[in-house]
Amino acid sequence: MPMTTADTEPVLKVVDLSLSYLTRQGPLQAVQSVSFELGRGQSLGLVGESGCGKTSIANCLMRLLPDNGRLTSGQILLDGQDLVPLSEEEMRHFRWGQMAMVFQAAMNALDPVYRVGQQVVEAIEAHGVEVTTAGARERVARLFRMVGLDPQLMERYPHEFSGGMRQRAVIAMALACDPSVIIADEPTTALDVIVQDRLLRELKGVQRELSMSMIYISHDIGVVAEVTDRIGVMYAGRLVELGDTADVFGAPMHPYTAALMSSFPSISGEKHELETLPGEPPNLANPPAGCPFHPRCAYATEECREEFPAQVQRGSRWTACWHPLTDMAGVGQ
């Protein structure tokens, strides 16, 4: 997959990543043959419904897998270094230091018995970014200002923070060690729209300012469209479409992307009919043969039922579909 937006080597390169969970029913293919690249200073969105594997990918990247998770294939190259074979000890250096994560449930990421500022200071000191405590505190104050928090709030406890403030503190913590990649997993899902809007603006501002790379995971295509340069659409553990955000949402190539778009109720413009995608996502312990989307797809044919489609490349984007939608009227068969 050539990248057009990044001229230099990508910061993060994921090649053929597969993950399964061992369950009572046998292995469950949560992520299957996923490859993508993330350029320096770029933001990539991963969208899809719950259970599609987007959070599993984040956990793979951070190597925060539950006991029953197994990486069955693939490489995760961070600045050319493969993270997959690293030991837990070696991984600890990369985690937070080079790659940081913002979780969905901010309350769980903050320890309720310590002052918020102290927790960030400790993260900094643990990674040796600043040697003196005073230096670390100065740095935290700067981070707090950056995410729109009053540095005086450092002395407060997590329960004194509102949902939006907590999520900001968690972002500040993720930024603490100056990571080159930040992974945000549904960071605004629990927030109200107005708070979400402000947080997204700040996140985007910080990412630009520090020219960090970001992976933004969400089920809300509206949010992803606003914060990312490129977007990957996931279905049943597979990446089915990847391209520049404006292109993908402007003219989706995969029927699933198109279905997501047309089932999204919009607030502006003409009220279009919402389309309902029939059926349910497949059981990953026993996925259908061929393209996993074929049982719900209006364009499915014999090949779709038999073989997973090869990538169809178009400029800087691609889709894995036998019958990609085109900008022109000739849609599928």
Partner: peptide
Amino acid sequence: MIERPPNQPPPAGEGVSLF
């Protein structure tokens, strides 16, 4: 979306019983 602790694997397929 369901809020799930970060280390929890996803449920075993939609609409399929654990037992």
